[in-house]
Design a protein around this nucleic acid. Structure first.
Lengths: 239, 239
DNA sequence: GGTGCAACGGTACTCAGTACCAGCAGGCTG
DNA sequence: CAGCCTGCTGGTACTGAGTACCGTTGCACC
């Protein structure tokens, strides 16, 4: 009966004590004592009290960075929505541990804040990747990259939280659905993923009927990418 | 020459010292001493060391809650994109103070994390408002609310940061633009803000030309909201 | 003057996190 | 075997944030 390594014992002890007495009511001394190690050893394995319950976000962040760097997707958004699956997978592999952590972060605001800060780092990575990928330094492109990254992360979090609450039996399928929902929000620029000669229809609402606006539609299609992109940002329904 | 109230003196002293020595290198004792008050008084005015430099998010959150509760906009997203302006306005009114805070949060990760956590609270409020407003408890609606809230906040933050960096002369106009960009991503359900009899065109990409898909388009338009909503999530370009 | 009250200062405490030092087991070399 | 290096460990002492409590001061109002 050889004892498991100190790191494992500390994590187990921490989770157990947090469950028993709550997070704030548990001191590092308590954790170290139950794990049968000295206080110093705790800080040798974990940077802080909060770090005990969180996964290694830095490593995961690096994993994602690599995945993005070597990705060969058609658009930045597809690459990112693919990479975000890594995060979901990581949590799923943790299984019950992830759920216990969720129960804690739901109750303790300090932990919730920390979780949110971690998520923000993923979002930032995505934003930078998208912006770089687009290679378009304009303001509009930068804003678009920001919104895209936020949408991907929000969709991921939504699915993840559903799974953590036990509301989802198949989170992988759900995240696929959620990602295509996000992708559908951001139609790819014309002539990019489809070959030339296709048709791009831009979404809008209008009080006119289809026949009335058909000529304008034809003009847009024939005008190519620039013309259709030019109207994408406006909202004809409001005029 | 009557001294300004202790709260102001403390905040001034804190900002000055943070600039001089850096955030971590400044202790509460330092701040209290420079402000000419006792250490106890510091904690009587601010809950923590971080709280000195942050605005009163709780109050602002309440302001926004009220604004949302009394808003009479056509869609939840419009109401939210309107309410988020309050946040921007608040920062703008702070003027130079907001910029000094930004310089600090950019350097000190603990402060950045705290800022992010605050922003997440706004986002959560927006998400809950949108979800409630939609009154649609389905999974798809819930996901949509989450993404909408994230997009609004991302767009706001983008404009705000530009202004904080001195890259924007007219942030109010910019946030208006950014919000209509967000609104254009989420077309309103049919028959809601436009009267009946209008036409809804759903965005998609296809390899076919306009004439080929025109019949299908007519069927969609005549089929009404359900039919068009049914195709909104798919991506014909991928099939 | 007395009373209530709000803000203040001081002391003492807990606890997270850091720095430093000393011990100890195992492997490797001479 | 002795010497030595290395990785892991425990202990002690310190700094600094945050809390609890208590006594004091200043001020308005009666």
């Amino acid at each position: 009966m050889s004892k498991p390594p100190a790191r494992i014992r500390l994590a187990d002890a921490a989770f157990a004590l947090f469950d028993e007495r709550g997070y704030e009511q548990t001191t590092i001394d308590d954790i170290a004592e139950r794990a049968g190690v000295g206080r110093t050893t705790f800080f040798r394995h974990f940077r802080s009290k909060e770090a005990v319950i969180f996964p290694d976000h830095d490593r995961l962040l690096e994993l994602i960075r690599d995945r993005l760097a070597t990705s060969s997707h058609r658009t930045a958004l597809v690459a990112v929505s693919d990479a975000v699956r890594l995060v979901l997978m990581h949590y799923i592999e943790e299984g019950d541990l992830a759920r216990r952590r969720y129960a804690l972060t739901s109750r303790v605001s300090a932990l919730r804040d920390r979780e949110i800060a971690s998520v923000a780092r993923y979002q930032r990575l995505f934003r930078e990747f998208i912006a770089e990928w687009m290679g378009d330094p304009t303001e509009a492109a930068s804003l678009r990259a920001e919104i895209m990254a936020a949408a991907v992360v929000a969709a991921h979090n939504h699915v993840l939280r559903r799974w953590l609450r036990g509301e989802s039996a198949d989170p992988v399928a759900e995240v696929d659905e959620a990602m295509s929902e996000v992708l559908s929000l951001f139609p790819a620029p014309a002539g990019e993923d489809t070959g030339r000669g296709g048709t791009t229809v831009v979404a809008f609402r209008t009080g006119q009927d289809l026949d009335t606006l058909l000529p304008a539609l034809r003009r847009l299609v024939e005008g190519g990418a620039e013309a259709s992109a030019g109207t994408a940002g406006r909202r004809p329904g409001a005029s």
